[in-house]
Structure formats: C-alpha cells, structure tokens
Design a binder for these strands. Structure first.
Lengths: 349, 349
DNA sequence: CTGAAAGCGCTTACAG
DNA sequence: CTGAAAGCGCTTACAG
C-alpha cells in the first residue's frame, strides 16, 4: 500500500470483478463482455487508476522506450525528439531520454540502465557502439538507429538521410557558383567501437569527394577534421584560412562547425561570401538568423524522428524483418554561399 | 526467466548464501560478515549481475530520478543537465529525462508518468505547475525546482539565481554606457497554473524596473513581451524599432530573444551597438561567436545543475527541512553593448 | 465470458 | 551474522 496508491485490486473491488478482468481491459486483451468492460472503465476513470509500471514490468511490458543521444545541446537532435514525441503522444509509450555527453562508455552504461529498466525498445541516435554490441542488443529488444548507415542490418531498423547525396548537393551548389578550391571541414571523434564508415559524417565526406571528382576538381579536394571543440575548430580553421592554398569555399559537416567558421572569418576581417563561401549541414533554425544567413543541407529532424518512432512501435508490435528508411536531403540556399541571395530568388539563379 | 537474465537467486546460488544476504550487500545494508560480503561481491562481478529495477521498485527504491524540462533545445538547459550528470555519474542514480515541449498539460502527464515509474525524486526545471500541485507532489516524493522563486517553500527545495539582480546589473551596465531610453524584451506564456511572479522572467523584469528607477529613468521604462516564437518576436521587435520613442538599448530576458533582435537589426541595416545596444541573459556559448558578440548575464547552468542534483540526493537520503539555494549572476560584457569592447578591456572602461 | 492461483525478482521484517 | 517466508502489483496460463 505505497502511499495509498490505487491498485488494480481497488478497481476490481469497485467494479465488482476479478483483477484478471481489470488487467484484460487495461491491456485491451479482449475476452471481456461489453457491459463488464464499460463498468471496469468507469471504475478506472472514477478512481483515477494508473497501473504501476514496475509491477507491469515484472510480467509484461513497461511501455518505456529508451532514447539515447549523445548531445542534448544539438538543435538538430532536439528536432528529432520533437518528431518522436509527436508519434508517442497518442500512445501509452513514454520516452526515457538518456544523454551520453559524447562518451562511449556512458553509452554502454546508459543502455545497460535501460535494459535494467526493461524498456520495450530503444532508439539510438548516432550511436557509438560497434556492430557486435548492436546486434547483441537487438536480440534482447527492438532497436532503431539513426545516423548509422547499415542498410543490410537484419536484426534492427535504421533511419537515415542520404548523407552522401547531402555532401554532393552542397558541393554541386558551390561548383555552380564558380568555386574550384572547395574544402571540407569534417569531424573526428575519439577512437571508438563503431566503424567510422557507418557514420553520417563519413558519408558526407564521400559525397564531397564524389562531387569534386565529377567536377574534375580532385586536385583541390581536401578534408580537414576537428573534434567538436570550439578551440580545436578555431585552430584548424585559422590554419586553413592562413595557408597558401586557402579555399574560396568551405563545406562544413554540421552547422555548429559552420557557425564557428563564420565567427573566425569575421574575426579575421573576411567578408562572407565574397572572401569565403560557407555551406553547413542540418539547416538548424539559427541558419535563418541574418548574422549567420547560412546555407545548409536540410534534413528534417522531425520527419526522421517520426519515422524512427513508428518503426520502433511496429517492431514492438511484432514485425520481424528489418526496415530501412532513407530520406533525401535538400539544400537551403542563403547568403553565406551566394551573393545577394535570398531564400526566394536563390532558385532562379 | 526473462531472456535468461541473471537474478539475485543465481548470485545467491553461486555464492552459496541466501538471497537475503545478496540483497543486503546490494543495498550496503550491513549485517553481513566480511568474508561473506566478499564472496557475494565476487559472484556479482563474476556473473555480471545487475538488479532488475522493476523488482526493486516493487519493494524499495528505483534509483531513478526524474528530470523535467520544457525545452530540450535551450542551450542553457543543456548546461544544467551537464551539471546534473556530473553529480549523478558516481552514484547509482539514473536520470530519466522528460520534455514538456512547453505544454503545461504534458508537464502534468509527464509527472504522472514519473510517479508511475516510482522515481525516487524529481528535478523540475522552470515548472509550470501551481503551488498546490507542487506541494501535493512533494508529499509523494522529494522535489527540487529551478526557476521557481519560492524561498519560503517548506516541502520542497529550490535552486535559483538572483534574477532580480541579473536584471539590475544588465541595466546598470547600459546606464553606465550612457543609455537612457532602455527597454526590455520579455516573454509571455500561455495562461497557466503557476503564478507569473515566481518565474525568473518576472524577476528579471523587476530588476529592470528597479535599476531604471534608481537611475531616475522611470519615464523610459517599458517592457514588451512576446511568446517564444520567432515570428512574434520579429513583429514585436520590428514595431519597437520603427516606433517614435525607439530605444537606444534593449535588455532581453534570454539570449534566444537577443539573437533574434540582432538578426532583425541587421536586416534593418542597423549597426550594433551604435544604433542599438543589446544585452541578453544566460550567457550561452553562442554569445561568444563574433557574429553575435552578445553581452549577457551569466548564470552558470552547470553549477545550478550540480546544486539541484545534490539537494535532491540529500532529500532522498532523509533531509526533512527545505533548502533554498540562491546564486549570484555576473555580467559578461561583449561588443553588442560596448563599442570596441573585448572581454578583456571591458573591465577597465 | 469470468476468476482463482501462480509467479515475476526483488526487499523487509522476523526468527534462529 | 544468516536465511526462510511474506509480499509488493501486476500478467498469464488455466480451469470452470
């Protein structure tokens, strides 16, 4: 009698039925006559009864879904969460968010914590785990990943955008603007279990190389990588912009990096896009601010989140084969890559 | 035998003791001889045993802590989470994040979900609930709030910064810079249960008024409020800057609003700080970017998060009287409010 | 359709 | 110090 909380027994007594009958109504399990069901539903409402999750967990589902992400500060990830919430809002499922703060060890600890809490399934956003860990985990519970390019995975679902194409359209746009010396600013993480080839970042690099090759600009192709740390980004970009073969255009794997590029360029007295054209990735809301006015490859976080949540619920409801979703990116052109560009006339240029 | 998960019974068998003994070791409950304890600990490690949270929840603690926040995209809130994580990292407690997306109804639903999941306590970040709901909730479990100015609450703890002082030092700084027509851009939310007087936003408005009065500028004092929506902020600010008594300086209740002000000012061809000085609040990382270069009232999110987490754990461990923490803000001066200012020479001016 | 009973994996008095 | 037993609030076969 925890805090005098209303239990299934109280409801059964009030509706004058067995607790088994109440349980069946709760789970919409059928095998209940209409009048009985209505009586039970009335008692549930009257007593404001909500089942205790621990007790359910001892036998059945917890209706908890684990959401694991590395960086809660990333606005793009927030949009994914919005999409996930939109799907979950009308379901009994409750998201349990876990943040790894970029530490791979915390990711494993967090997943263990979620297993211990018997989540019904988990969405991993840009996971750092390797394939073995992931497929091991997927034997225990349904899994959907985002930002993990493994379209042949057969024990878990993936949701991604075509990151290769994202890199390509960014570079194509810069090439069309007359740029030849186009460089890419990418990211690098600590050594980790996951093969780098599976990350969106790597795929974007591939897209960059593809487009440079196609444009006959292979000799200009150069990728610089920095850890997601303002100081290191600063060092790399300053070196880059002070160097001999200083680029006229820079494709950044994420808006976050691009904003730092804009900051450094401004600090160096450079004018954007005259002295340097910049294109980011994610099309986060800050891109629209005039002080940034950043062109960016758009991937709809909300749509991605919705797809991931739907896939997970399908899995929980019994789907056995893997489903792999691949969405297409589009480019939002703004002033950082096009003189006198606005979002409107950009298309006409 | 869920997935063949290792249970307390397996450990007991391996260590050749009773499950009660294992339980005592798990909870560090004492009443176990040293050799027995060591044998049990060895078995736990050997079998990689972790207790099932649901089963613990049926009798004792879940070691889950609820963290409820409105907006996961707010970088300041992310910093609070960093602080919370820092404290929790070396404890058995696991944070369960819930996001209300600014909807008061979701806040109540989320709290219910956490009650159903038997969290040992909850940290509410800028809650929308009224006092009755909060004190009712605090009878069920330990509660710590942030951004809820209720220093006389006796059933829950509060952690805050001195928001009134925050408003004052922002305005004092602008007054010292020669400004007289200083306005404030504040926020307004949908009607809600919580009295507005308890919010940091309101307290910042009070600080604004205090400082204006002290400087003899009462006749200039004017607060404009906008919902946290880019379009509405845009409308309000454009009206403001086009009006007769257009301000020479604007104090914004949050950096997010200030960034939009910078964007609009740029769009209107205004020069910052010559045509308009701007001061924000929170000192989020983007303030440092040169395209923003935004002066801002600093409240250390990480410290606030640590304090909140520590207070909650103290409560869980038995503290009965309320504890109220009040931290002091400081101003980070940058170019948006001071000509030729850098973070270094600002102090000398 | 309906309900009595077993049992999930722990914790907590309690007896030895 | 040690362990047998009751019980937390549900779900799940199973019998009627």
């Amino acid at each position: 009698m925890k805090n005098g909380r209303t239990t299934i027994r109280d409801v059964a007594k009030d509706a004058e039925v067995s607790i088994a009958a109440v349980s069946k109504v709760l789970r919409k399990a059928g095998g209940i006559s209409d009048p009985t069901r209505q009586r039970i539903e009335a008692s549930i409402a009257k007593l404001n009864y909500r089942p205790l999750i621990s007790a359910r967990g001892m036998r059945g589902q917890t209706y908890n879904l684990g959401i694991v992400l590395s960086d809660i500060a990333n606005p793009f990830f927030s949009e994914i969460l919005v999409g996930i919430h939109a799907v979950l809002d009308n379901t009994p499922y409750q998201p349990l968010l876990g943040v790894t703060m970029g530490k791979a060890a915390r990711e494993q600890a967090l997943i263990n914590a979620m297993v211990d809490r018997q989540v019904d399934g988990v969405i991993l956003i840009a996971p750092h785990l390797g394939e073995r860990s992931l497929s091991g985990l997927s034997r225990q519970m349904p899994i959907v990943t985002f930002g993990y390019h493994k379209p042949d995975a057969d024990t878990f679902d993936t949701v991604n955008i075509e990151d290769v194409m994202g890199g390509e359209i960014a570079v194509d746009h810069l090439v069309a603007g007359g740029h030849r010396n186009i460089m890419m600013l990418s990211s690098i993480a600590e050594p980790e279990e996951r093969p780098r080839e599976l990350t969106g970042t790597y795929q974007r690099e591939q897209g960059y190389h593809n487009a440079m090759k196609r444009a006959g600009l292979e000799q200009y192709a150069r990728v610089v990588r920095a850890r997601p740390d303002p100081d290191e980004i600063g060092r790399q970009v300053r070196t880059l912009l002070a160097g001999e073969n200083r680029p006229t255009a820079l494709f950044c794997w994420a808006d976050f990096y691009a904003f730092h590029v804009l900051s450094i360029a401004k600090d160096l007295g450079m004018e954007i896009p005259r002295d340097l054209a910049v294109v980011g990735f994610d099309n986060t809301p800050s891109c629209r601010l005039k002080q940034n006015d950043l062109s960016s490859v758009d991937q709809s976080g909300a749509v991605l989140g919705e797809r991931a949540a739907k896939a997970l619920i399908e899995r929980i409801n019994g789907r056995k084969q893997a489903a792999h979703t691949l969405l297409l990116p589009r480019l939002a052109v703004r002033g950082s890559s096009q003189i006198e560009a606005t979002e409107h006339d950009a298309a006409g240029t």
